[in-house]
Design a protein around this nucleic acid. Sequence first.
DNA 1: AATGTGAGAGACAGGTCTGTATCATGTCAA
DNA 2: TTGACATGATACAGACCTGTCTCTCACATT
Lengths: 201, 201
Amino acid sequence: MSGARKLVPEPSIDKPTARDRILNVASDLFYHQGVRAVGIDTIIAAAGVAKMSLYRAFPSKDDLVAAYLEKRNLEFWERWDRTIADYPGDPRAQLEGLLDAITQRTLSEAYRGCPFLNTATEFPGSTLPADTVIRAHKRVVNERLRAMATAVGARDPQMLADQLQLVIDGAYSAGQALGVEGPAKALASAGRALIAAAVDA
Amino acid sequence: MSGARKLVPEPSIDKPTARDRILNVASDLFYHQGVRAVGIDTIIAAAGVAKMSLYRAFPSKDDLVAAYLEKRNLEFWERWDRTIADYPGDPRAQLEGLLDAITQRTLSEAYRGCPFLNTATEFPGSTLPADTVIRAHKRVVNERLRAMATAVGARDPQMLADQLQLVIDGAYSAGQALGVEGPAKALASAGRALIAAAVDA
DNA sequence: AATGTGAGAGACAGGTCTGTATCATGTCAA
DNA sequence: TTGACATGATACAGACCTGTCTCTCACATT
């Protein structure tokens, strides 16, 4: 089995490998300053890493961007699952809990918007590896929302899912561009009103 | 009065000046490909203009970007006013007409999102001249929405304005990133549900 | 001790970007 | 005709970007 470690370097307990440091630093910088604004040199300097270490781990910057988004995707679903785990067996409370958690996040200091929407904005109409990650992420969000909309008894679960995704994406954008002053704080009330309208008679 | 033409070159009926061609081309390219993705050389080539003509009209690219957003801002309010003029004296129909018009726009082929949010995303946390235009635009949208929310008799006009701005910005983002398949098509129904919840007993 | 490997340091190539400087041209008016 | 003015064409400077190449070192396993 020792050979397997060479083929697939799994997350080890040892001190973080160069690849991990690069990805962590890139995730921070890409998210807070934008992908186009952050160059390779900035990343390797912040990670304390040689340039060749980056290009050995990631064939190109595009691949590093895709890895960044995959990492963000994982973290997103960890937060999601942690939130709904707080309300077992109560789909409506789960939905509202998600809305509250997202609201809080979008109003926090360092919030810089949805990394997927942001990257899509930075590379419009592209066919980069990142694009696949972005579309897959948004599709799964829609599916999960639709499943929850069904669980709460919405008359038209697909429509409620679309509506909720709309206010959530709106909160992402508004939180980023306008901060606490902006309309992002209305996410929780808007979501609740949409759920109520879709469920109650 | 002939001296005034030299000081302030007003929009003339003559053949478009170099400045106009530059701004029109820049508006198209910046919007569809992104500000960072479009260089000065691309703009002057597409406008059929000398580089010095650009820098004579705009001190720097940052100023050109600000002018681009100011142009988009003007066009935005022209569309807005044209839409609400279709329903004189009926604020609720005006609001719903706006939602429908925006929906249609976000689902059109060439739609590439909100130019203000997009530019804010491309230059996070900046203090560029463009930033002033962006924040002013979103603030005025919120004010106009609040006035209309008051007119339709919302119990909490500020909250309804925030909620509507949220779904609108969400439709902008979703229309851009996901296209017709995405949730942007739910804008009209979401907006109507929010208005109804805010107005009706 | 020997060997293999992950990784740091730094130079370099080729391209693109913004912004400047210089010179030529075309047009309109006095 | 002469002069003013807007504009075109082009070269250039200096910075930055991605990606490659080479040399070196530290360490771990055998």
